[in-house]
């Protein structure tokens, strides 16, 4: 664990020194939040739209933006830089645990996601959003979104370790990107067309989004929140196992 913490600190320092990589993770989700609310806010007024539970449409859209912000997989992009630049081999030539090599970046990613989520939620308050589930709910939002960031970064790290190419890692990450939109991102699942509802129901991201949404909009459905955490935990275990397998067979 000591080695993981040492390498995580280095990964965080690296992020602080690369603000140009942090900027899009904040700007792009905010952009989508503002644009989506601007386009559909009048269609779904808070006063007469039941699924908004008295909030504006921004509250409904916030979870999509939070998930988007947590889905840049910057850990993997920094990892592939290490691979291409030779620093990864220097680390591999030290007697540190192979687990620490992949876990450290995921841990750093979770810290970054916690901060990013807090900032995005804080900014959304200016757009009239309120976290109806209170401080406890806010903490659960942070935890769930950070856990998703770890899952997504884990997926991207698999591509980085397999291809060892920055370009492939970036484009490989985009393959997963549409999954974020095959969700009930604009209306609840029950209002989707049947094919879209089936697609959304098969998409694990849907359950994380719905868990975040219930925490933001209130009337907390603990079953939904539990399901979101269960999905992210399951995916997390799978990604971690695959990352460990990949690093142990890295040649």
């Amino acid at each position: 664990m000591r080695q993981t913490l040492l390498l995580s600190s280095r990964a965080l320092r690296e992020s602080v020194r690369t603000p140009e990589a942090l900027f899009p993770t904040l700007f792009i989700p905010l952009f989508f939040l503002v644009v989506n609310v601007g386009q559909a806010g009048k269609i779904f007024p808070g006063t007469s739209t039941a699924f908004l539970h008295g909030q504006g449409y921004a509250g409904f859209q916030l979870p999509s933006s939070l998930l988007l912000g947590a889905s840049f997989g910057s850990a993997a992009l920094f990892l592939v830089e290490d691979i291409e630049g030779g620093y990864f081999d220097r680390l591999r030539a030290t007697p540190i645990s192979r687990t620490a090599l992949v876990l450290s970046r995921l841990l750093a990613e979770s810290v970054k996601a916690l901060l990013l989520t807090a900032v995005l939620v804080a900014i959304s308050l200016l757009l009239g959003v309120r976290v109806a589930s209170g401080i406890g709910g806010f903490l659960l939002i942070l935890l769930l979104n950070a856990a998703w960031a770890v899952v997504y970064a884990g997926f991207m790290q698999l591509i980085a370790l397999k291809t060892r190419s920055g370009a492939a890692t970036q484009s490989g990450g985009l393959v997963f990107f549409p999954l974020l939109f095959l969700t009930p991102s604009f209306v609840p699942r029950t209002m989707l067309t049947r094919p879209m509802e089936i697609a959304a129901s098969c998409n694990p991201v849907t359950y994380i989004m719905e868990a975040l949404r219930t925490l933001v909009l209130g009337h907390v459905d603990w079953g939904s929140v539990g399901l979101g955490f269960a999905v992210v935990a399951g995916l997390g275990v799978v990604m971690l196992a695959l990352n460990l397998r990949m690093i142990r067979n890295y040649d």
Partner: peptide
């Protein structure tokens, strides 16, 4: 190795300190 395996975002001192701590 052939390509100096260094992390360009760290300082020389930070790199050496981290390396020592990893050992």
């Amino acid at each position: 190795l052939q390509e100096a395996g260094l992390d360009p975002r760290q300082t020389g001192r930070e790199l050496l300190t981290l390396q020592a701590r990893l050992y």
